[in-house]
Amino acid sequence: MAKPRDPAKTAPRTGPRHVAIIMDGNGRWAQKRGRPRLFGHHAGARRVREIVSSCPDFGVKYLTIFAFSTENWKRTQTEVAGLMSLFRRYIMKEMQEFVKENVRVRFIGDRPRLDAKLRGLMDEAEAMTEGCTGTNLTIALNYGGRDEVTRATQRLARDVAEGRLRPEDVDEETLPRYLDTYVLPDPDLVIRTSGEARISNFLLWQSAYAEYEFIDTLWPDFTAKIFGELLSGYGARDRRFGAVSA
């Protein structure tokens, strides 16, 4: 079997190369202002641009954001419909700017449940930015970590059943090649806003050695300054990956 990679060898020496963010708190931000939850989602979408634009200044090459989970379908029909409309408008509005800023856009998650127009816009955005070589922005849309691992395992099982892969050759290096994130490095830092201290089914496999920051700031109030402060704190951490300090 292939030898599992040593995460310490792929980790950045100072700041994180790949940051993942659970963008939480849009609804509470709106409710504090006496506005509907969708008002907060629109404010949160505008905040994404600032954070993406700041990534080159901070040395962040990969940014993955959690936009809509497989569990979010449980929300009211009004909120879900509003979010889907927001995603369509956001993609149409922002893609030209991302091309100008040299941002490569990818989407992860289970696409078939999304409507055809949204899926088409996602495909178009990925195609438009395919040649961009700056920040890699990955948007998790209808994404759940358990769902991702389930789908990956199904694909792996089909390859075994059809003789393309031997069962004895399956190791912990094999499954990641079937995940939605197969072209991305694992996240070094995962940030969750809004004061909640849970990972909410986000990048479960990929975050095995990630550092976490749980902060009270609601996502629409999350600025590039706050982002930079968290990244600076990351550089001071002692990341041992199961070993002991020298």
Rank of each mutant, 00 (worst) to 15 (best):
R46S: 11
R104T: 08
L231S: 01
H18I: 07
S200N: 09
A210E: 01
F66L: 09
T223K: 07
G235F: 11
P36S: 06
P220V: 04
V183R: 13
N142Y: 01
N136R: 13
T181H: 02
L118G: 08
F87M: 04
Q31F: 11
V52R: 03
D147M: 10
G109M: 01
A127C: 10
S207R: 00
A243K: 14
L204V: 14
F241T: 09
Y209H: 09
W205Y: 10
A116G: 09
F214V: 08
G59K: 09
I22L: 10
W219Q: 03
L63P: 01
L86S: 03
I199S: 05
Q206F: 04
R146W: 06
I22R: 04
G25P: 02
I139F: 02
L141H: 04
L184S: 02
A11L: 13
T14I: 14
A43T: 06
P12F: 09
F202M: 05
T150C: 11
R155M: 11
G34F: 00
I226W: 03
G25T: 03
L230V: 09
D147V: 11
V80A: 05
S245C: 13
R47N: 12
F39R: 02
T76C: 08
D188P: 05
A11W: 15
N26Q: 06
F202P: 01
M92R: 15
L230F: 07
F66G: 01
T153N: 03
E229H: 13
K93M: 13
I215L: 10
E173S: 15
L184V: 05
L156M: 11
L165V: 06
R106F: 06
Q206L: 04
Q31M: 12
R35Q: 14
G242F: 06
V190E: 00
D115T: 10
D6L: 12
P167E: 08
G82F: 05
R151N: 07
L63R: 02
I215S: 03
P56A: 10
T70G: 05
R37K: 12
T76G: 08
D159G: 01
S54Q: 14
E229R: 15
Y182I: 00
K117P: 04
T181L: 00
L230Y: 07
Y212M: 13
M84A: 07
Y234P: 04
R35F: 06
T10G: 15
Y178E: 04
C132E: 05
L165W: 00
T129L: 07
V99E: 08
P167R: 06
N136I: 13
T138R: 00
V80P: 03
E97F: 13
K93G: 10
Q154G: 10
A2E: 15
R28V: 05
R13Q: 14
E172K: 11
K32V: 05
A224P: 03
E173D: 15
N136M: 11
A197N: 12
